[in-house]
Design a protein around this nucleic acid. Sequence first.
DNA 1: CTTGCGATCAGGGCTGACCCTGAGGCGCGA
DNA 2: TCGCGCCTCAGGGTCAGCCCTGATCGCAAG
Lengths: 214, 214
Amino acid sequence: MRVVIADDSGLLRSGLASLLTETGIEVVGQAADATELLAVVDASRPDLAIVDIRMPPTFTHEGARAAVELRAAHPELGILLLSQSLESRYVADLVREHPHRFGYLLKDRVVDVTVLVDALRTISAGGTVLDPDVVSHLLGRREIAEQLLRLSARERDVLALMAEGLSNSAIADRLVIDIKTVETHIARILTKLDLHQTPDEHRRVRAVLTWLRG
Amino acid sequence: MRVVIADDSGLLRSGLASLLTETGIEVVGQAADATELLAVVDASRPDLAIVDIRMPPTFTHEGARAAVELRAAHPELGILLLSQSLESRYVADLVREHPHRFGYLLKDRVVDVTVLVDALRTISAGGTVLDPDVVSHLLGRREIAEQLLRLSARERDVLALMAEGLSNSAIADRLVIDIKTVETHIARILTKLDLHQTPDEHRRVRAVLTWLRG
DNA sequence: CTTGCGATCAGGGCTGACCCTGAGGCGCGA
DNA sequence: TCGCGCCTCAGGGTCAGCCCTGATCGCAAG
């Protein structure tokens, strides 16, 4: 098996390369960022790419984005995404669209090189490898994301400002609209997020929590 | 230089050991959890311990706690804490009480083995190594923590429930107290968190945000 | 013993937030 | 063209939340 490793941490990259080499897996290239990853894969044509989700320049989802491009350019390439924490947005799309030759593991769960090699073998054989916590978290995140997707762009603007702790009048000032408009947006936000009038909940706070978790 | 490595990830531990060995640093032991770390340090008497903050069983601050114990038992031992994210509570105490032979770096910032070795050298020579972002984050977190420290235990109970999105009447039910008592606690919370009456802020949401960030 | 603090509760008042209902304008797709 | 969704705004009403002021009790420290 011929493998490429992409991680902005040279430390981890080199360490990983060293360990995999010891297991007989050939590391044919390394990349520190998404652009370099695409180039290295083009040049070395590996069987599989091990990609850290967070890479420069934004350290957000560059790795996941690069994975999408890799799949487009190299449909037979296996991809193993590694992440330190659960990253739902891009991964959900990736798994849905390309379930084969794909893996997503939390680094914390790769307790030794055996786990990693087993995952690589599964992916290389056409399978899918997902950490169970990843699966259940994706489902939960999906729910919140779907609720937030019901909101119009304007409603999302308003909710974002609510989540900063702004009052209705401050939101009206900020968006240069009338306070009655803010109230209307908020009413629609609460309805779309299924936050109905109950004596137990502070619905505004609930809406804010939903936003913060989305 | 003789070094011990403690990280629950065997992958990272082995990779790190391999890399450090190549630079001439002797890795005299490895540990997968805090208990094992203490035993390995007792047995091998290293110059320095590289410790991941999050280790079993709780994966919260076992590493930082073990560092405190290590310093007590081995005052000359250098300690380098590594973390994937900013962890403020125990580190702030550790730095304040033991500024020498101490380091705290974010794994993301250790871009290659050179950075790591430089840090180890500094610590071994008696110095302190702190990532700049760590410093400024510690200061910011300190501020919020100090505000929350002004609250009485009961006030913190109430604020935690506010942060779950409970209404005042639900909080009263939950804590088996009168709603007037809840109102009194909330008034005191808002005062202690310096959240005064302004037309721009939704103060309850602000209080909740402070809690969530603390 | 006195004082201060925290927890609890009360009476009464005000208001921002939320709601109901209604209306107009614009853009887009069928 | 029509219907729908979105954005905007209005009049009027209700109430949970917040506040002011006051009071009692228990506990710990000086």
